[in-house]
Design a binder for these strands. Structure first.
Lengths: 239, 239
DNA sequence: AAGACTAGGTGTACGGCGTACACTTGTCAA
DNA sequence: TTGACAAGTGTACGCCGTACACCTAGTCTT
């Protein structure tokens, strides 16, 4: 009598638990193997059970994005706009790198979640506080694009590592058709041979492009401060 | 008698015909409704027939990308690197805009097709001819990213047009949480109300960002010419 | 003319997917 | 005790990509 030994019940589901499991699954097995059925299995539950906690798969993905966005460190306070923006973007990048699927999923979102909007809002705030006009800030946001969230879509995956022997043959083969590409690839691989790992330092490349943009924005800001005309949207310099 | 009237046979399939049909279908009905089955139906053929001409769906998508890339005008000859690059990129953009699905598909490609490689090679060639070192060109290619092909991923679709009444209510609602976003949206909509169409001039935004980058690259090039040191990959200005 | 070879199109089937819908079960308030 | 409600289940549907065996018509060889 008294209280029976409860049959070993698993913890009840919740939106939170579902999202965390989804993120973990995507982290471990890749976003392609994240299906509602597989996720349910992971949670030891029948697939349809998930639908009591998320409306559908799209909303699941939205929720996963929010988990990642939630991991971005808050902006540093009291810094100049440029360093504040730079730091925040690199913070976002760190969060995204922890979840390799995140950038792909972000790209596929059609509507921004409130959390993403909040992040964007705070980024806009950094520029506005730095003295950018509303107009200019708008253009800036477009120019930065996904870089605001710490990633850029790479058009092809050049970080594949392959057998040096095969690689050299490929290079020789490609050289006839794509001499300029090969010229670059050669240098990259040569530099990398002493070090280790893939041919490209993605982080360095990201920061290079980021700083290039930020420096350009700084110049624009100076221009705007000197002549705060209602700038027509024209090219930065020839405007 | 003589030659009998041949039964009305449809034109035989070919990789070419399959690709053209796929592009047309995606253009008209969106990339989401492009399935092997639907495409086969369009060609009045059983689904498996397609597999005699393309290995699988991935290769079909690769082929579709090539169709689009093939539509990009060749580079203008004899121009300065900056205008040559600018024109070519805007040409690529025109091709992509003709096929709204193309940027999404391009993003999803994991390997570049030879045609894409050829395009990239020719873009690299423009920079090299303009005096960029191999190293710098490499960084430039990363910095330009998908912009080289005339598109940038927009993180959320702000060009949705909706009932002005609903819009104003939304704006008022959002204002509390996202004041900076609303500040921008208001200006954009105000500017657009006189004109027509969506709130944002995407082409202008694209060119703004493109010119911002090209101007930055020009400055880098000057720096490099003056001190052609084997530049360590550091930020453009603080390097 | 006969047979072999082959490229192109067919038919069937499998395993996966997202999810609609009707159901049971456990919990707790009235 | 009842009955409402939230959580989990089971079944089923229509879609997807594609493996595999088959058929068919044309071409090439002898």
């Amino acid at each position: 009598m008294a209280q029976r030994v409860a049959p070993p019940r698993r913890a009840p589901l919740s939106k939170e638990r579902v999202l965390r499991a989804a993120v973990a699954l995507a982290d471990e097995s890749g976003i392609d193997s994240l299906s509602m059925r597989r996720l349910a299995e992971e949670l030891d539950v029948v697939p349809m059970a998930l639908y009591k906690h998320v409306a559908n798969k799209e909303q699941l993905l939205d929720g996963m994005v929010d988990v990642v966005i939630g991991e971005i460190d808050p902006p540093v306070r009291g810094a100049a706009w440029k360093t504040a923006v730079r730091h925040r973007i690199l913070a976002a990048r760190r969060a995204l790198l922890r979840h390799p699927w995140a950038s792909r999923v972000l790209e596929s979102r059609t509507d921004a979640t409130p959390l993403v909007l909040a992040y964007m809002d705070s980024m806009i705030g950094l520029f506005r506080a730095g003295g950018f006009s509303v107009d200019l800030t708008h253009h800036v946001m477009h120019a930065m694009g996904s870089r605001l969230l710490g990633f850029t879509q790479e058009l092809f995956d050049d970080s594949r590592s392959l057998d040096p022997e095969v690689r050299d043959m490929l290079i020789r083969e490609m050289g006839k058709q794509f001499p300029h590409i090969v010229e670059i690839v050669k240098v990259v691989y040569h530099e990398a041979d002493s070090v280790v790992g893939p041919g490209c330092d993605d982080q360095a490349e990201f920061e290079f492009a980021l700083d290039l943009l930020l420096d350009g924005l700084e110049a624009l800001l100076q221009r705007e401060i000197q002549s705060p005309a209602p700038s027509p949207v024209r090219g930065p310099i020839h405007g």
